[in-house]
Write a protein that binds this DNA or RNA. Structure first.
Length: 896
RNA sequence: GGGGCCUUAGCUCAGCUGGCUAGAGCGCUACGUUGACAUCGUAGAGGUCACUGGUUCGAGUCCAGUAGGCCCCACCA
């Protein structure tokens, strides 16, 4: 089973496609993602936002699930019992639409099949395709506890739904009534306020004359929906409107309808708008509905569930589509000379969030949940600080919505979903309404026949229970006791109201505790032009394609690192390489760094601790850097600043480990400086490499696991999944090594810059003289001499008290103190040297002036923190020293 | 109409509690295969941190306003 491999046989190019599926299978085989309530001492739980069963995996899922997996893997490595509950949502309207379209190909409607057969048909569809999206998460490396996969229509979850409905009913928090709701004439169902998406459209405002019924004259009303006038039952004016006071109580003759309707006074009317008259259509407008109730007006329905004019309208319009009726009515009004004006008018119109049809406000008998009593505790939890949003600003949005909640219309005229657990008695004289946890056969009151409410519940009525219904609620299960409340919830901001706020309410109301403590809102994935990715635009990026071409790790790293939480991120669907090359190249970099290291490490090297080694400057430096990286990455993930964590890990691996440390210890690893030195370098390298793989594992699980298993002495039995996570406090730090190394880097950088400036052949090794350099730079240079020679392509490196007199060369004054001299003989360009010195002089003089200004300011000295002042002093001293040297240089170079 | 956000290098973005001589990746320029990596290396160019005021010893960072852009909520016909 176990297999040990040396590093040398790794390919120079990282190929994720052959590795990722193997590792994932291995993880599943060891059942690594499953957690039992029994014995889970320190659980960390995330409930996945269940994707619609009909959904195809897109980049939004890619981003969201990467975020969750990073958190889960991080906590698992930290030793917690990290458990991630996966699952899907039955998505009432969406799924029903899919299957309706499917059977339509055979010329069938759901009515043709009948309810039972249709629902069975949907189940078939779900069984066949429903798990696709979930299994695709495996490709991305998501470490979900697959044994716990749930579906919102599962038996257990359905029981939770019923329990909740009954409890709400018993507390009088759910009621049934005739109100204006958003109606989708295509889906034939009611929608909640949140499901009607309002968009500004360029409409028109038609000004229509309504003649007074008795006597001359007319009033002018303005409307954006002339077709509703057939349902007008009044005209309203503001009670204080001086102009029209005399008209209140009189009647107008409703054109085209041949009815007389009263003029009423109502506060709702804005006297400033238009003529000050409002037509009142109680059955088709929420405001008018209120006015109607206040004045006891009739509610005349003129548009039916199909969006057609009803039989209650005059003959010519009967049965017409609402928009066709609008055209006809406008034409007829015009012909009758009643159309006073038509003006362009931008206004917002509701659209069905599923099929984009213009929704119709419609009077209809529906079930509602009273939200205010539920909202208060949800608001309090946030205000107490028990519920946190990341980024914080979304808290304001949450608060705003909760303080203005309106009742939630939960009944849907669909077949696919949880049927409303209400039975109506058909018996004469009884007619009772019964809400029940169990199906009813007979009326509990009279024993008569009962009929169940035909409607189903809004999909979100099951989703809002997700964090606890998935754990077995309403039963008091071990799972519920151990894993609830969950910890983080990661989702898109657009479902803050649909889902997040409602889950908070449900958790507090039904379980008595918040469902989670931290809400992460990620940004929207957009294309290169900033457009939202969508099927219709064809600009989507398929995560599976990205995984195939670049690897899951590359995708995950790119997604996590390219924008802060809450910030939208752009991906170019036409040039995937430009988007994902960062992650792919980084994976390749890690791969090759490890490949190199593995070629030089023995099993013993991996066993050693830094404390056992005879550390040199470079070793102490990289350990110091590593310790800082551990702290930064840990802090970044713990604070949900994932992009910072990713960036810190990237910096450490690429800029510190690869660019400097590896280059510096190549000779030592080959034994050039003896066994003790080799062992120190090898032991340090093994330690920081192992640690770097750990730091990166939450974001890049595959490549890190693969390399981990390749370390000397390790086998495929080994795994990074359970940590341990590196302990930053246990890594030896050395501020002194950090300072000394900074100076070394400056020397190397200086030589390289001078070489580039003078166009020195890269193959040519130069001599370098370090003039008058202070400690600790002097010792550092001596210690790392060999590495410096190779990094800066130096032939000889020597110290001097003063610059070699009369020798032509290039100078550089070091911030670390002293100066660097490159004897260049023929190559040196005096004019160029003068320019360089002059520019540098000017730049530093400017900085010194600013620094002196600060230090000369008494208020700065008193007001600023002591360490800031101290730093400023050191800066000024250093600048002064460098300026002195530069001036000497200038003098020695003479005038141009 | 209400609420929130954004405006930092050619592009995409960092910059949390004010101390920055403002960073990264990509792109660009020049040079380079010194056996981990050309999915690479070295050096470099490139920014009045949208604008105007204010607070402060000190503002990319806080406050107010202006301009432009985005998002969410909303029943002004």
């Amino acid at each position: 089973m176990s297999e040990s491999r040396a590093g040398a046989d790794l390919s120079p190019r990282y190929d994720p496609s052959g590795i990722e599926p193997v590792l994932y299978r291995r993880w599943l085989e060891r059942n690594a993602f499953h957690v039992e309530a029994d014995g889970a001492a320190d659980p960390y739980v995330i409930a996945i936002p269940p994707p619609n069963v009909t959904a195809a995996l897109h980049m939004g899922h890619g981003l969201n699930n990467t975020i969750q997996d990073v958190l889960i893997r991080f906590e698992r490595m930290r030793g917690r019992d990290a458990m991630w509950i996966p699952g899907t949502d039955h998505a009432g309207i969406a799924t029903q639409n899919v299957v309706e379209r499917q059977i339509a190909r055979d010329g069938l409607t759901r009515q043709d099949l009948g309810r039972e057969a249709f629902v069975e048909r949907v189940w078939e569809w779900v069984r066949q395709y429903g798990s696709t999206i979930i299994s695709q998460l495996e490709t991305m490396g998501c470490s979900c506890d697959w044994e716990r996969t749930r579906f919102t229509l599962d038996e257990g979850l359905s029981r939770a739904v019923r329990e909740v409905f009954v409890r709400l009913y018993e507390k009088d928090l759910v009621y049934r009534g005739n109100y204006i709701i958003h109606w989708c004439p295509r889906c034939h169902t009611a929608l909640s306020n949140e499901e009607a998406e309002h968009r500004d459209v360029d409409g028109r405002l038609w000004h229509v004359r309504y003649p007074l019924a008795d006597g001359d004259g007319h009033v002018v009303v303005a409307t954006t929906r002339p077709e509703t006038m057939l349902g007008d039952t009044a005209v309203a004016v503001h009670p204080d409107d001086e102009r029209h006071r005399g008209l209140v109580g009189r009647e107008v003759a409703l054109p085209l309808a041949g009815r007389r309707i009263p003029i009423v006074a109502d506060e709702f009317v804005d006297p400033e708008f238009g003529s000050g008259f409002v037509k009142v259509t109680p059955a088709h407008d929420p405001n008018d509905f209120e006015i109607g109730r206040r004045h006891d007006l009739p509610e005349v329905e003129v548009i039916d569930g199909d969006g057609r004019m009803t039989g209650d309208v005059p003959g010519p319009y009967r049965g017409l589509d609402r928009f066709e009726a609008r055209r006809r009515i406008v034409a007829d009004l015009e012909a009758a000379g009643l159309l006073e004006a038509v003006v362009p008018h931008a206004h917002s119109v509701g659209h069905c969030y599923r099929c984009d049809t213009v929704v119709e406000p419609r009077l209809s008998l529906q079930w509602f949940v009273r939200m205010q009593p539920l909202a208060r505790p949800a608001l309090d939890a946030y205000r107490r600080g028990d519920l946190r949003f990341h980024p914080e600003r979304f808290g304001a949005t949450y608060e705003h919505w909760l303080t203005n909640v309106r009742d939630w219309c939960i009944s849907r005229q669909l077949w696919w979903g949880h049927r409303i657990p209400v039975w109506y008695c058909r018996a004469e004289g009884c007619g009772g309404t019964h809400v029940s946890r169990e199906d009813l056969e007979r009326c509990p009151a009279c024993g008569g026949e009962v009929e169940q409410d035909p409607d189903v519940l809004d999909t979100w009525f099951s989703s809002w229970l997700w964090p606890f219904s998935t754990l077995g609620w309403p039963d008091e299960t071990d799972d519920l006791r151990v894993f609830y409340p969950t910890h983080a919830l990661s989702t898109a901001p657009e479902i803050l109201f649909f889902w997040v706020a409602r889950m908070v309410m449900a958790g507090l109301e039904f379980v008595g505790d918040l469902p989670f403590t931290d809400v992460l809102l990620h940004g929207t994935v957009r294309d290169a032009r900033g457009r939202r990715m969508s099927k219709s635009l064809g600009n989507g990026v398929d995560p599976l394609e990205v995984v195939e071409r670049f690897g899951a790790d590359a995708m995950r790293f790119t997604l996590v690192s390219s924008a802060a939480l809450g910030t939208d991120l752009q991906l170019d669907h036409e040039d995937l390489e430009s988007s994902f090359r960062v992650g792919r190249n980084f994976a390749n970099k890690i791969w090759n760094a490890a490949r190199f290291a593995l070629g030089h490490l023995a099993a013993d090297d991996v066993e050693r601790r830094p404390a056992d080694l005879d550390l040199e400057l470079a070793d102490r430096w990289i350990l110091d850097r590593f310790g800082r990286a551990v702290d930064a990455v840990t802090d970044g993930i713990a604070r949900f600043r994932l992009h910072e964590a990713a960036e810190e890990a990237y910096r450490f691996v690429w800029n510190d480990l690869c660019d400097w440390y590896l280059e510096l210890v190549k000779g030592r690893l080959n034994g050039e400086r003896g066994e003790a030195s080799r062992a120190a370098a090898a032991g340090t390298l093994a330690f920081v490499l192992d640690g770097a793989l750990r730091l990166l594992h939450p974001v890049m699980p595959f490549i890190t696991e693969e390399l981990h298993c390749h370390l000397p002495g390790r086998t495929t039995e080994d795994t990074l999944l359970f940590g341990p996570w590196p302990d930053g406090g246990a890594v030896p730090r050395s501020a002194e090594a950090a300072r000394a190394f900074d100076a070394l880097q400056e020397v190397v950088g200086g030589v390289r810059r001078l070489r580039a400036d003078y166009g020195i052949d890269p193959g040519r090794r130069v001599d370098v003289v370090l003039v008058d350099v202070p400690q600790p730079l002097r010792t550092a240079v001596e210690q790392e001499r060999a590495g410096l020679l190779s990094l800066a392509r130096i032939a000889e490196l020597r110290f001097a008290e003063a610059a070699p007199a009369g020798e032509p060369g290039a100078h550089l004054v070091l911030a670390a103190g002293g100066e660097l001299f490159l004897p260049l003989q023929d190559l040196v360009d005096l004019e160029r040297e003068r320019e360089r010195v002059a520019e540098e002089l000017e730049r530093l003089a400017g900085l010194l002036a600013a620094s002196r200004g600060r230090l000369g300011n008494q208020r700065f000295l008193e007001g600023a923190p002591p360490e800031v002042v101290e730093r400023e002093r050191e800066k000024a001293v250093s600048l002064e020293e460098r300026l002195v040297r530069l001036r000497e240089k200038r003098a020695s170079l003479g005038e141009a």
